[in-house]
């Protein structure tokens, strides 16, 4: 019961700052679940993002559900989801009741002038950390050529073709089985 409450509170806290919806929140979730609470092994977190990315829906909420389930089963998944969406619901109700055109307020606009680049920076930080942690770069060999090849190919496919990312994820899974299985 105490664990469920802790899962709920963790994602409730993250839910309040989840600007930009999805991937920008991954370093935050990572920090909370691998470092603050130690619920998930750091190396495993990238696999959780992979699972989150294979399903429709916002990446942050999806990752919260996987973490919740991995830590405390079905109840964990439920409290993680509720924790994640409840702050949005509360803030939307307040905005809808009192000031619908919040995005036109100069203060909100200037806040976003700073928020957007910080969120972008957080995303690139996440990419670097995950690459280091899984020894795609910075491992014993400094660069793992096979991993890097997969990374660059996936990057080019996502940037220059209209193939849906989920198919690229699945295809790289098959590549993994062929190369490392």
């Amino acid at each position: 019961m105490a664990e469920l409450l802790e899962i709920f509170l963790t994602f409730f806290k993250i839910g309040f700052v989840s600007f930009g919806g999805g991937i920008a929140m991954l370093p935050l979730i990572d920090y909370e679940v691998t470092q603050v609470h130690g619920w998930i092994a750091p190396q495993e977190f990238l696999d959780i993002i992979a699972v989150a990315g294979m399903s429709p829906g916002p990446a942050a909420t999806n990752a919260a559900i996987v973490v919740g389930y991995a830590v405390a089963g079905f109840p964990g998944a439920v409290v993680a989801t509720v924790g994640m969406v409840l702050p949005s619901l509360m803030i939307i109700l307040i905005v809808a009741m009192f000031f619908f055109r919040i995005q036109e307020k100069p203060l909100v606009q200037s806040a976003f002038y700073g928020l957007r680049p910080v969120i972008t920076g957080l995303i690139f930080y996440a990419a670097t950390v995950f690459a280091l942690r899984n020894e795609i770069i910075g491992g014993e060999k400094l660069i793992n050529p096979l991993y890097l090849l997969i990374l660059v190919s996936a990057l080019l496919l996502m940037l220059f073709t209209r193939i849906h990312p989920v198919f690229i994820i699945i295809a790289s899974g098959f590549v993994g089985v062929m190369l490392f299985g």
Binding site: G20, G22, I23, A24, L26, L46, D47, I49, A50, G53, R116, P117, I119, T120, I123, F124, A126, A127, F130, A131, N134, I136, Y147, L148, I150, L151, V152, A154, L155, M158, L159, P165, I168, I169, S172, G173, F174, V175, G176, V177, L179, F180, G181
Partner: peptide, 28 residues
């Protein structure tokens, strides 16, 4: 086998995150 699949998937997830950064970066 699942472990091997994830070894292939992890670099792709890093690519996915970079792409998200580029996309948000364009408006930021």
């Amino acid at each position: 086998t699942v472990q091997a699949a994830f070894q292939g998937i992890r670099p792709t997830i890093v690519a996915l995150i970079i792409v998200a950064g580029i996309k948000i970066g364009k408006t930021a």
